[in-house]
């Protein structure tokens, strides 16, 4: 009797997530290894060229060239990876007495998580995403299409999904993962960076399943969650802003113009998401 029997783990989901975490671990090792090898080769060549130049034209030129190369390497290595938009243009922060905020506050109370801010934004689709950055409070952005076109129960499912991205710390995780993928992309050979990107994205897809499942258990309505996923997945215009595309990597549905089921998708297929929700429905005794 008790909560554990009804709200226990989804074993298949836990196993898949473990595999994804392991893949990311291998990916990090592969990246570090590849960078180490390429730096060793690079330093070897530079050193040889530098010695030769110093011998030929005097050492000041060579030292200057080495310092310049070092500076460039440092700048590219520490270039900040912007994961989410610093400023989301045209966002309208909702006041506490708005119906949407009230809906969110109740969900936060039910799940005992701190309440993020909620803002409306214009996107050419029904969607929502979370944004968080240095000096900026956690905010859930809800597209106006989602806010005004979805029925209440589906809107609640969308908010609950995003709330669990916040509660699980997925925005911070995304920041780290995209940084790993970005570093591999710039520093490691192509076959390594493709593997890194795919493993990072496979972990992100598991996070979507985890958010779906936790949200469906919280609202007690897996069928509303399923309906919301379908209602938000109608084909729409692509999101062009690179910042927003990254932000939507922790969104409710992917930004629209992507095919489903590819190894580098940020979101699982609709069918895979419905399967997880069906297992939730079974635990609730539907």
């Amino acid at each position: 009797m008790g909560m554990q029997s009804r709200y226990g783990d989804d074993r298949a989901l836990t196993r898949a997530t473990r595999v994804a975490v392991l893949r990311v671990g291998f990916a990090v090792l592969a990246t570090v290894g590849a960078i180490f090898v390429s730096y060793a080769v690079l330093v070897g060549i530079k050193g040889a060229v530098g010695l030769h130049a110093a011998w030929e034209w005097g050492h000041w030129w060579a030292v200057g060239a080495l310092v310049l190369v070092g500076l460039l390497a440092a700048v590219t290595a520490f270039r900040r990876v912007r994961v989410v938009a610093r400023r989301v243009h045209g966002a309208e922060l909702l006041p506490d007495d708005s119906r949407f905020v009230q809906m969110l506050t109740r969900l936060c109370s039910l799940g005992d998580v701190p309440r993020p801010r909620l803002a409306l934004i214009d996107l050419p689709m029904r969607n929502a995403f979370v944004s968080e950055g240095p000096g900026q409070p956690v905010t859930i952005y809800l597209s106006r299409h989602a806010a005004y076109e979805l029925p209440d129960d589906q809107l609640e499912a969308v908010l609950a999904h995003e709330l669990f991205h916040v509660a699980h710390g997925d925005t911070a995780l995304l920041r780290v993962l995209e940084r790993i993928a970005d570093t591999a992309d710039r520093k490691a050979p192509a076959f390594v960076s493709v593997y890194v990107l795919r493993s990072v994205r496979s972990l992100l897809r598991q996070r979507e399943h985890a958010a779906d499942r936790a949200a469906a258990l919280l609202t007690g309505r897996p069928s509303s969650m399923a309906a919301a996923i379908e209602a938000c997945s109608v084909p729409t215009a692509p999101i062009r802003s690179e910042d927003l595309r990254r932000a939507i990597a922790v969104g409710f549905v992917p930004p629209g113009d992507r095919g489903f089921g590819r190894p580098d998708d940020t979101h699982p297929t609709i069918d895979a998401r419905l399967e997880v929700l069906a297992r939730v429905a079974t635990t609730l005794g539907t």
């Binding site: 709200y7 989901l13 997530t17 975490v21 669990f164 699980h168 995780l173 985890a210 936790a214 919280l218």
Partner: peptide, 11 residues
Amino acid sequence: DSILGRSKPAR
């Protein structure tokens, strides 16, 4: 648990 997405339901 956080990495694996296993949030404990609030009691």
